[in-house]
Amino acid sequence: PEDLERKVRELQKNGVSPEQIEKILRRDGVDEREVQELVKKVS
């Protein structure tokens, strides 16, 4: 979803590592495939 992507970009802009971003997304209940997609987009 659009807002998730925005969140991921925000986190990355704040210097959060892709690994941390993955953890955060998983903790928020984002589905694994979605997590991978989002992280791939920003890394």
Results as ranks from 00 to 15, higher is better:
P1F: 14
P1N: 14
E2T: 14
E2W: 02
E2R: 13
E2V: 13
D3P: 07
D3G: 11
L4V: 07
L4S: 03
E5H: 10
E5R: 10
E5F: 05
R6Y: 07
R6S: 11
R6N: 11
V8H: 01
V8P: 00
V8S: 01
V8L: 05
R9I: 09
R9T: 05
E10D: 11
E10L: 10
E10F: 07
L11P: 00
L11F: 04
L11G: 00
Q12D: 05
Q12G: 06
Q12K: 10
K13P: 01
K13Q: 12
K13E: 11
K13D: 08
N14S: 12
N14R: 13
N14A: 14
G15Y: 00
G15E: 02
G15D: 03
G15Q: 04
V16A: 13
V16M: 15
V16L: 14
V16R: 06
S17F: 04
S17H: 07
S17D: 07
S17Y: 03
P18V: 14
P18K: 14
E19V: 06
E19G: 08
E19N: 07
Q20C: 14
Q20P: 00
Q20T: 10
I21D: 01
E22F: 01
E22S: 04
E22I: 11
K23M: 04
I24Q: 07
I24T: 02
I24W: 00
R26C: 09
R27Y: 07
D28H: 13
G29H: 02
G29M: 04
G29R: 00
G29F: 02
V30T: 04
V30P: 01
V30A: 08
D31G: 09
D31L: 06
E32H: 05
E32M: 08
R33K: 14
E34G: 05
E34W: 15
V35R: 02
V35S: 03
Q36E: 12
E37W: 01
E37T: 02
L38S: 04
L38M: 11
L38A: 10
V39A: 04
V39H: 03
K40T: 11
K41I: 13
K41G: 11
K41V: 09
V42H: 04
S43R: 14
S43F: 15
S43H: 12
